[in-house]
Nucleic acid binder design. Structure first.
Lengths: 203, 203
DNA sequence: CCCTAAACTAAGCAGTTGCTTAGATATATT
DNA sequence: AATATATCTAAGCAACTGCTTAGTTTAGGG
């Protein structure tokens, strides 16, 4: 149930009109996403969502059906928000340097009040069990594959690059950014800089 | 409260003797650790621990004080269990090849029924909030630093290695193994092999 | 064989979980 | 103003959370 459709409202526009929603669904999902990102799925209760989103539980369930529904929309919003840096990577024309820039852009993207929250998608993969929600897991995998493909495209901008090696290097870079997502929660910025430097030293 | 001390029992050995424990504390902690490893801390309830450990809640609280206490002992047991591969790394005398072997050893260590559970320490860092349990977080950091030091020692077995570079490479390798801990939950073995190959290709 | 004390069982505690519902409120058309 | 109906508030639901406690069982020393 991705946001409540307005179709019924439009169809009934000739009949009596009812009360308007006092909140914007995208705005409250933005707040929910921020909370899930900071806390994780399980550690975020519906009562906490209520407070953070600034609306009553009834409204949460009316708009998104369930806590799980709120989370799915939060993941969608996360993708929208991170799009600005994946788009930048896609547009980049300077091979591995573009990927390196993505690493730094991601670190900036994931930081809030000098605390690094990691990647919401990575955090979720780490938290949920594959078999408990295979549909969501598949969606998260697809997202990661998309970024891996961008890595590959940028690597292949080097005409001398062996395509088979490039594919392995794309997997390697995906692994490194997964590591960064975890490491950024604990490591100092100078250590993260070292890591990125070595990561791109010889590819 | 690391396991219940036997001192009181010894002191009172001249008085009337009481019933014996019908379980071995290390054995039930092994089972608890397995459950925490599979499920994470929050997603594991005391009722689930009861079933897995095969003892009553009373016995759990008598031996370990709290769910948190069971978890702390589980982390200790995890360290004991992984010691066989860190010891192997420590004893290794062939530089980066020894570290590479540790990567493969870790993958085997973390696999159960063809499912990779990642590293319990990494999973925990990812789940808990730094400020909610700084003592545990510090302990987990120390553990990671110990492994990073083993990486550094092995790298420095190469007499031509620049020590400053080696330090950065140790951070880099720690980041890669963090990535592997996450990636192993989702990636195929062939992809993991590619990742490890590239990771060690250029250091 | 009785007594003491630890270990056991199982019921129960208050607080929280995700979710629902009854009833009050607001709003655009008639 | 009257009506219809979506949205709001707030109370409440059963199930579950970590943890405790009352009462029974089991063991060994006297």
């Amino acid at each position: 149930m991705p946001f409540q459709s307005n179709c019924l409202v439009l169809l009934r526009s000739l009949e009596a009109m009812a009360r308007k929603k006092q909140y914007n669904e995208q705005e409250v999902i933005d707040k929910a996403m921020a909370l899930f990102w900071r806390n994780g799925y399980e550690a975020t209760s519906v009562r906490m969502l209520e407070k953070e989103m600034g609306i009553n539980q009834f409204s949460i369930y009316a708009s998104f059906g369930s806590k799980h529904g709120v989370f799915l929309e939060s993941i969608n919003t996360y993708k929208k928000r991170i799009k600005c840096i994946t788009d930048k990577l896609q547009a980049s024309q300077n091979g591995k340097e573009g990927i390196k820039q993505y690493f730094y852009d991601f670190l900036k993207f994931a930081r809030e009040n000098n605390v690094n929250k990691g990647c919401l998608v990575t955090n979720t993969v780490n938290e949920i069990k594959k078999e408990s929600d295979p549909v969501l897991m598949e969606e998260l995998s697809k997202f990661a594959d998309g970024i891996k493909q961008l890595f590959l495209n940028n690597l292949l901008q080097d005409p001398n690059k062996n395509p088979q090696l490039a594919k392995k290097q794309a997997n390697y870079l995906m692994n490194c950014i997964l590591g960064i997502s975890v490491a950024s929660k604990v490591f100092k910025q100078s250590e993260l800089d070292d890591i990125i430097e070595i990561t791109f030293m010889n590819i």
